[in-house]
Amino acid sequence: MKQIQEELDKLGIGQLFGRYPFLNGYLSTQGLELNGEETDTLPTFLKKLDPDEIEDKALDAESIITGTATYISQMLEFLGDGKERSVTEITLYPGTNKDGEPENFDKLTFQRGEIVCIVGPTGSGKSRLLGDIEWMAQKDTPTRRRLLVNGDVPDPKWRFSSSDKLVAQLSQNMNFVMDLTVEEFIRLHADSRMVNNAEEVVQNIIREANALAGEQFAPNTAITSLSGGQSRALMIADTAILSRSLIVLIDEIENAGIDRKKALKLLLNEDKIVLMATHDPMLALMGDRRIVIKNGGIHRVIETNDRERAILSNIEALDFKVQSMRHMLRQGESLEHFEF
């Protein structure tokens, strides 16, 4: 940080842009018009501005300088090798339920590529559990739960990082609200994540989303006109591939217009930890474990056993039939000769 501040005092704006290409975006957001060839340093440039312009654009020179230094150091960290962010496992230690009674487990370890289901009635404390994980609770939330990352107390700066949230969320009532085509939208997201091969990533996401969706959509479809199933397919593919969050929380995947099994597989392929609140038997049994929440606390942890797995293959066979019938209906076919 100190080194960056010295650079700001010494280097001309043009040189700074050469070193930190993302800086132009930041400074234009702050209301400065720059062509990237200025030889003045940023403090000198700001000093030379017309006082009327400073007032009109509500500029604050000092805050722009400190903000620039902060932004550069954030971006360097974001673009860095990511070693310090690489999480392999998360361990949860018990707290208490709403009545202050201790929770029924010693510790829970979540590993990359694992599906854990969360079951329990509405209001039982599912969102609090998620909140504790996202906040990396250190006995400082109402449940007094504690969370370790890779076996260590996590760095508190994680809590406030806007670019590296631990948890990404996909829930039932989410919509796309932007007025953009699928392609433009994914590119916008890719740009905000500073990926190098944006074009390739965009095409990859659209391909994966189409593989999940019952009905195909074109890259130039407006995101707001996608069907429910297509929207969710796109959200899942985008979260799996572009989001940096290690944990993906899913609040029930509707059984309509999307291949749920493939969707989960895509997330696991990207090495995510999937936490899924669901009461759908097929999804619940796909998890390796189920966390049962009752009265604000974790009441029980059930490992999916062989007997349950056997049931799962029956459910999957049934689900396959239902999906096939859905497909036939969509194609305008008759079901009278369907083998059930």
């Binding site: 670019s163 009532n173 989410m174 919509n175 796309f176 939208f185 916008l188 997201h189 979260t239």
Partner: peptide, 13 residues
């Protein structure tokens, strides 16, 4: 809770 994860991330950035 009403917009997609992608939109949340873009907005926050």
């Amino acid at each position: 809770d009403i917009v997609s994860q992608a939109e949340r991330e873009v907005f926050a950035s």
